[in-house]
Design a protein around this nucleic acid. Structure first.
Lengths: 210, 210, 210, 210
DNA sequence: CATGAATGAGGTTTCATTCAT
DNA sequence: CATGAATGAAACCTCATTCAT
């Protein structure tokens, strides 16, 4: 009856296993991996997969929300433990992009890519939560003169979502390393400089993210 | 018989129309648009589409090579007309990313994403050609002190390929503007600076691109 | 061990509840309601349902035999309490078709519809029992000049089985009323008349019912 | 482009074959025959079936509308060729119920049974058309003193829909004969008589049919 | 004995590709 | 050479049924 009731221990294990496998496969092959493939790699039958996630949408939702929770945890820790805003930002980018594979990218990407997820209340809640933390950090770093004034947390999250993708033409095992490299270059681009050209396009703010 | 034989005028039109439509659809919905959809939007029957491109692979190959040709033309013009290497680079990035929509991104992306294309001789030839031009420009700009020494043309093309994608959560019509914005930030990141932190990951060179 | 062993009181309740729910659902949605739906509406788990009825066949058998018992009771009462055969017949039709909802229709229908039930000894026994009572009533009413001579108890039961179904295009709550109406018209048709056209088709007798 | 454009000759043949097979199978086994079975018996591949009817609903719609057209043609002919209304009615009932197998029953049944069909404009149009003809005939026959005054065309069509179904427990090949028999008994019931009991239930009129 | 998780067969539907007109 | 019909493999999803807790 209660939808959030505790699962049986083995069922909970299965659920986690499915999410992990789906996360990896989606990151590698995109959101339309065969459900059978997910089931097989997770070591369950197709029926079990569908009992836990009644359709593809729910599976992706499960993966996205799961990722979001992890990314938010990283952001919170970074903000709490690092007194300096810029340091907190770089730590967040490094950890979210590196340790958790493509967690951040997936989370942010699916947050908006899968049309149906865009109206999911839980997803919107988590996204707002994350963007609030990042917004605080960006503004503090800007006040410290570390980040250029014409960028926003929306820019940061959008670039992360774009850069945290499978890299075409690179051996898959080089991808995490590559991601770290390009995220570092991105941070360089966001830094405040004595004199820089103005950015061309319209500013993108939190309000534009949906 | 001769595969390069001139097509009849109307057939040639069909071919171009198909490529244009396929390019747009792939850029928007990914590489697995239904062939029927491509045919319908191009105003031809499915049979005609298959007469021109015997299977999906050939269609994507057509799109990718076509894009590559355009991007290379842009790169050549920029190198020829701009005496300054850095100016040529920014012009290339701006024009390839802007005027041609997602041409550049598509080209580079498919160059490596579709496994079968990775061994396609024509594709390899064009890719080498483009990377050679970019490599010249990057090295010259580095010699001029405009670009940091620890990046390569491979980095440039990879980041372009990543940033030139549909932006999740943004209205589709904002995408080109957003692309311009993020490409500009990327160029900032590539600039040589008095003192910067070293890049974390292994250098990625032309040799790593396949 | 003993299949007819008394069930525990609560188990017996479960069993009755399941039959009632299954009866209603089958009457409304046909014989292929999901077993899970039956279980849910009966307030038991799917496991309990299967403990009581090892498969769908047994469940339907349970429903059909249960209905049959009720219909037979009605027929017996009508025969016992009404001295006039025609009155007994109309009373049977009215009560079996009305009070018990679709009990009669279901009973007779499933008796023959579900192939596997056609060879079920208990089902055959009950069907023979019911038809024997109806046969007595029809013959007596024919002897009284109340029922045309070219119809049989087989005709009567067949028409009841056909008319006691959900009525397409009618609000579900009008169905019982409609059933009463059409059963009444059917009885009119069965009446003996001074001069009527002969019935066209081959007579259908008790022997044809299987 | 034009959805009603002529099909190629062979495709038209296939379409008709599919409808015929689907009609027969649905009449025998209900509306949930496997699509594969329909395809196989029609001698086409599953793909062809789905090209012609994009889903089960469209297939059933095709069958129902096809039946309706035939039934309406029968009704029109009967009304045109028989000067006497009662004779026209009996002819309609006999022909619609006999020659066309279960055409009439199917048509009327699906018209309302498949919820989605209840709002189909073409279906509603045909149903109204048929009921109008039957209504004219019933009223004329009532004026002639041949049909009881408390029944309507709605009663007639509803009883036909109910009686034209597979007969449980009867060999399938006896079904058409049985249908003819029960339709004849039904007509007897509808006849005007010197003195009859009033019908119990609320009158059912054309307005109640949806 | 009740529960609800897991299995897997089978039905539905989509689409790349081939081929008759 | 264009058209659009036919094919069939593969994906999606739903349940009946079994079995661990």
């Amino acid at each position: 009856m209660n939808p959030d009731r505790k699962l049986r221990a083995d069922a909970q294990l299965n659920r986690e296993q499915i999410i992990a496998v789906a996360h990896a496969l989606i990151a590698e092959h995109g959101a339309d991996v065969p459900m059978e493939e997910v089931a097989r790699r997770a070591g369950v039958s197709i029926g079990t997969l569908y009992r836990r996630f009644p359709n593809r949408h729910e599976l992706i939702r499960g993966v996205a929300l799961n990722s979001f929770h992890q990314v938010i945890a990283i952001a919170r820790t970074a903000e709490d433990e690092e007194p300096d805003a810029w340091t907190a930002l770089t730590r967040f980018v490094r950890e979210a992009g590196g340790d958790l594979r493509l967690a951040a990218g997936l989370a942010m990407r699916f947050a908006g890519t899968w049309a149906a997820l865009r109206d999911d209340p839980e997803n919107l809640r988590l996204r707002a939560l994350l963007l609030k933390i990042l917004d605080r950090l960006v503004r503090r770093a800007q006040a410290d003169g570390k980040v250029r004034n014409d960028v926003s947390a929306a820019d940061l999250s959008m670039m992360m979502a774009l850069l945290l993708r499978p890299m075409p033409g690179l051996q898959p095992d080089l991808t995490p390393a590559g991601a770290g490299r390009y995220l570092a270059l991105m941070l360089e681009g966001l830094r405040a400089r004595p004199a820089t050209d103005p950015l061309p396009a319209p500013e993108i703010t939190l309000a534009d993210l949906r």
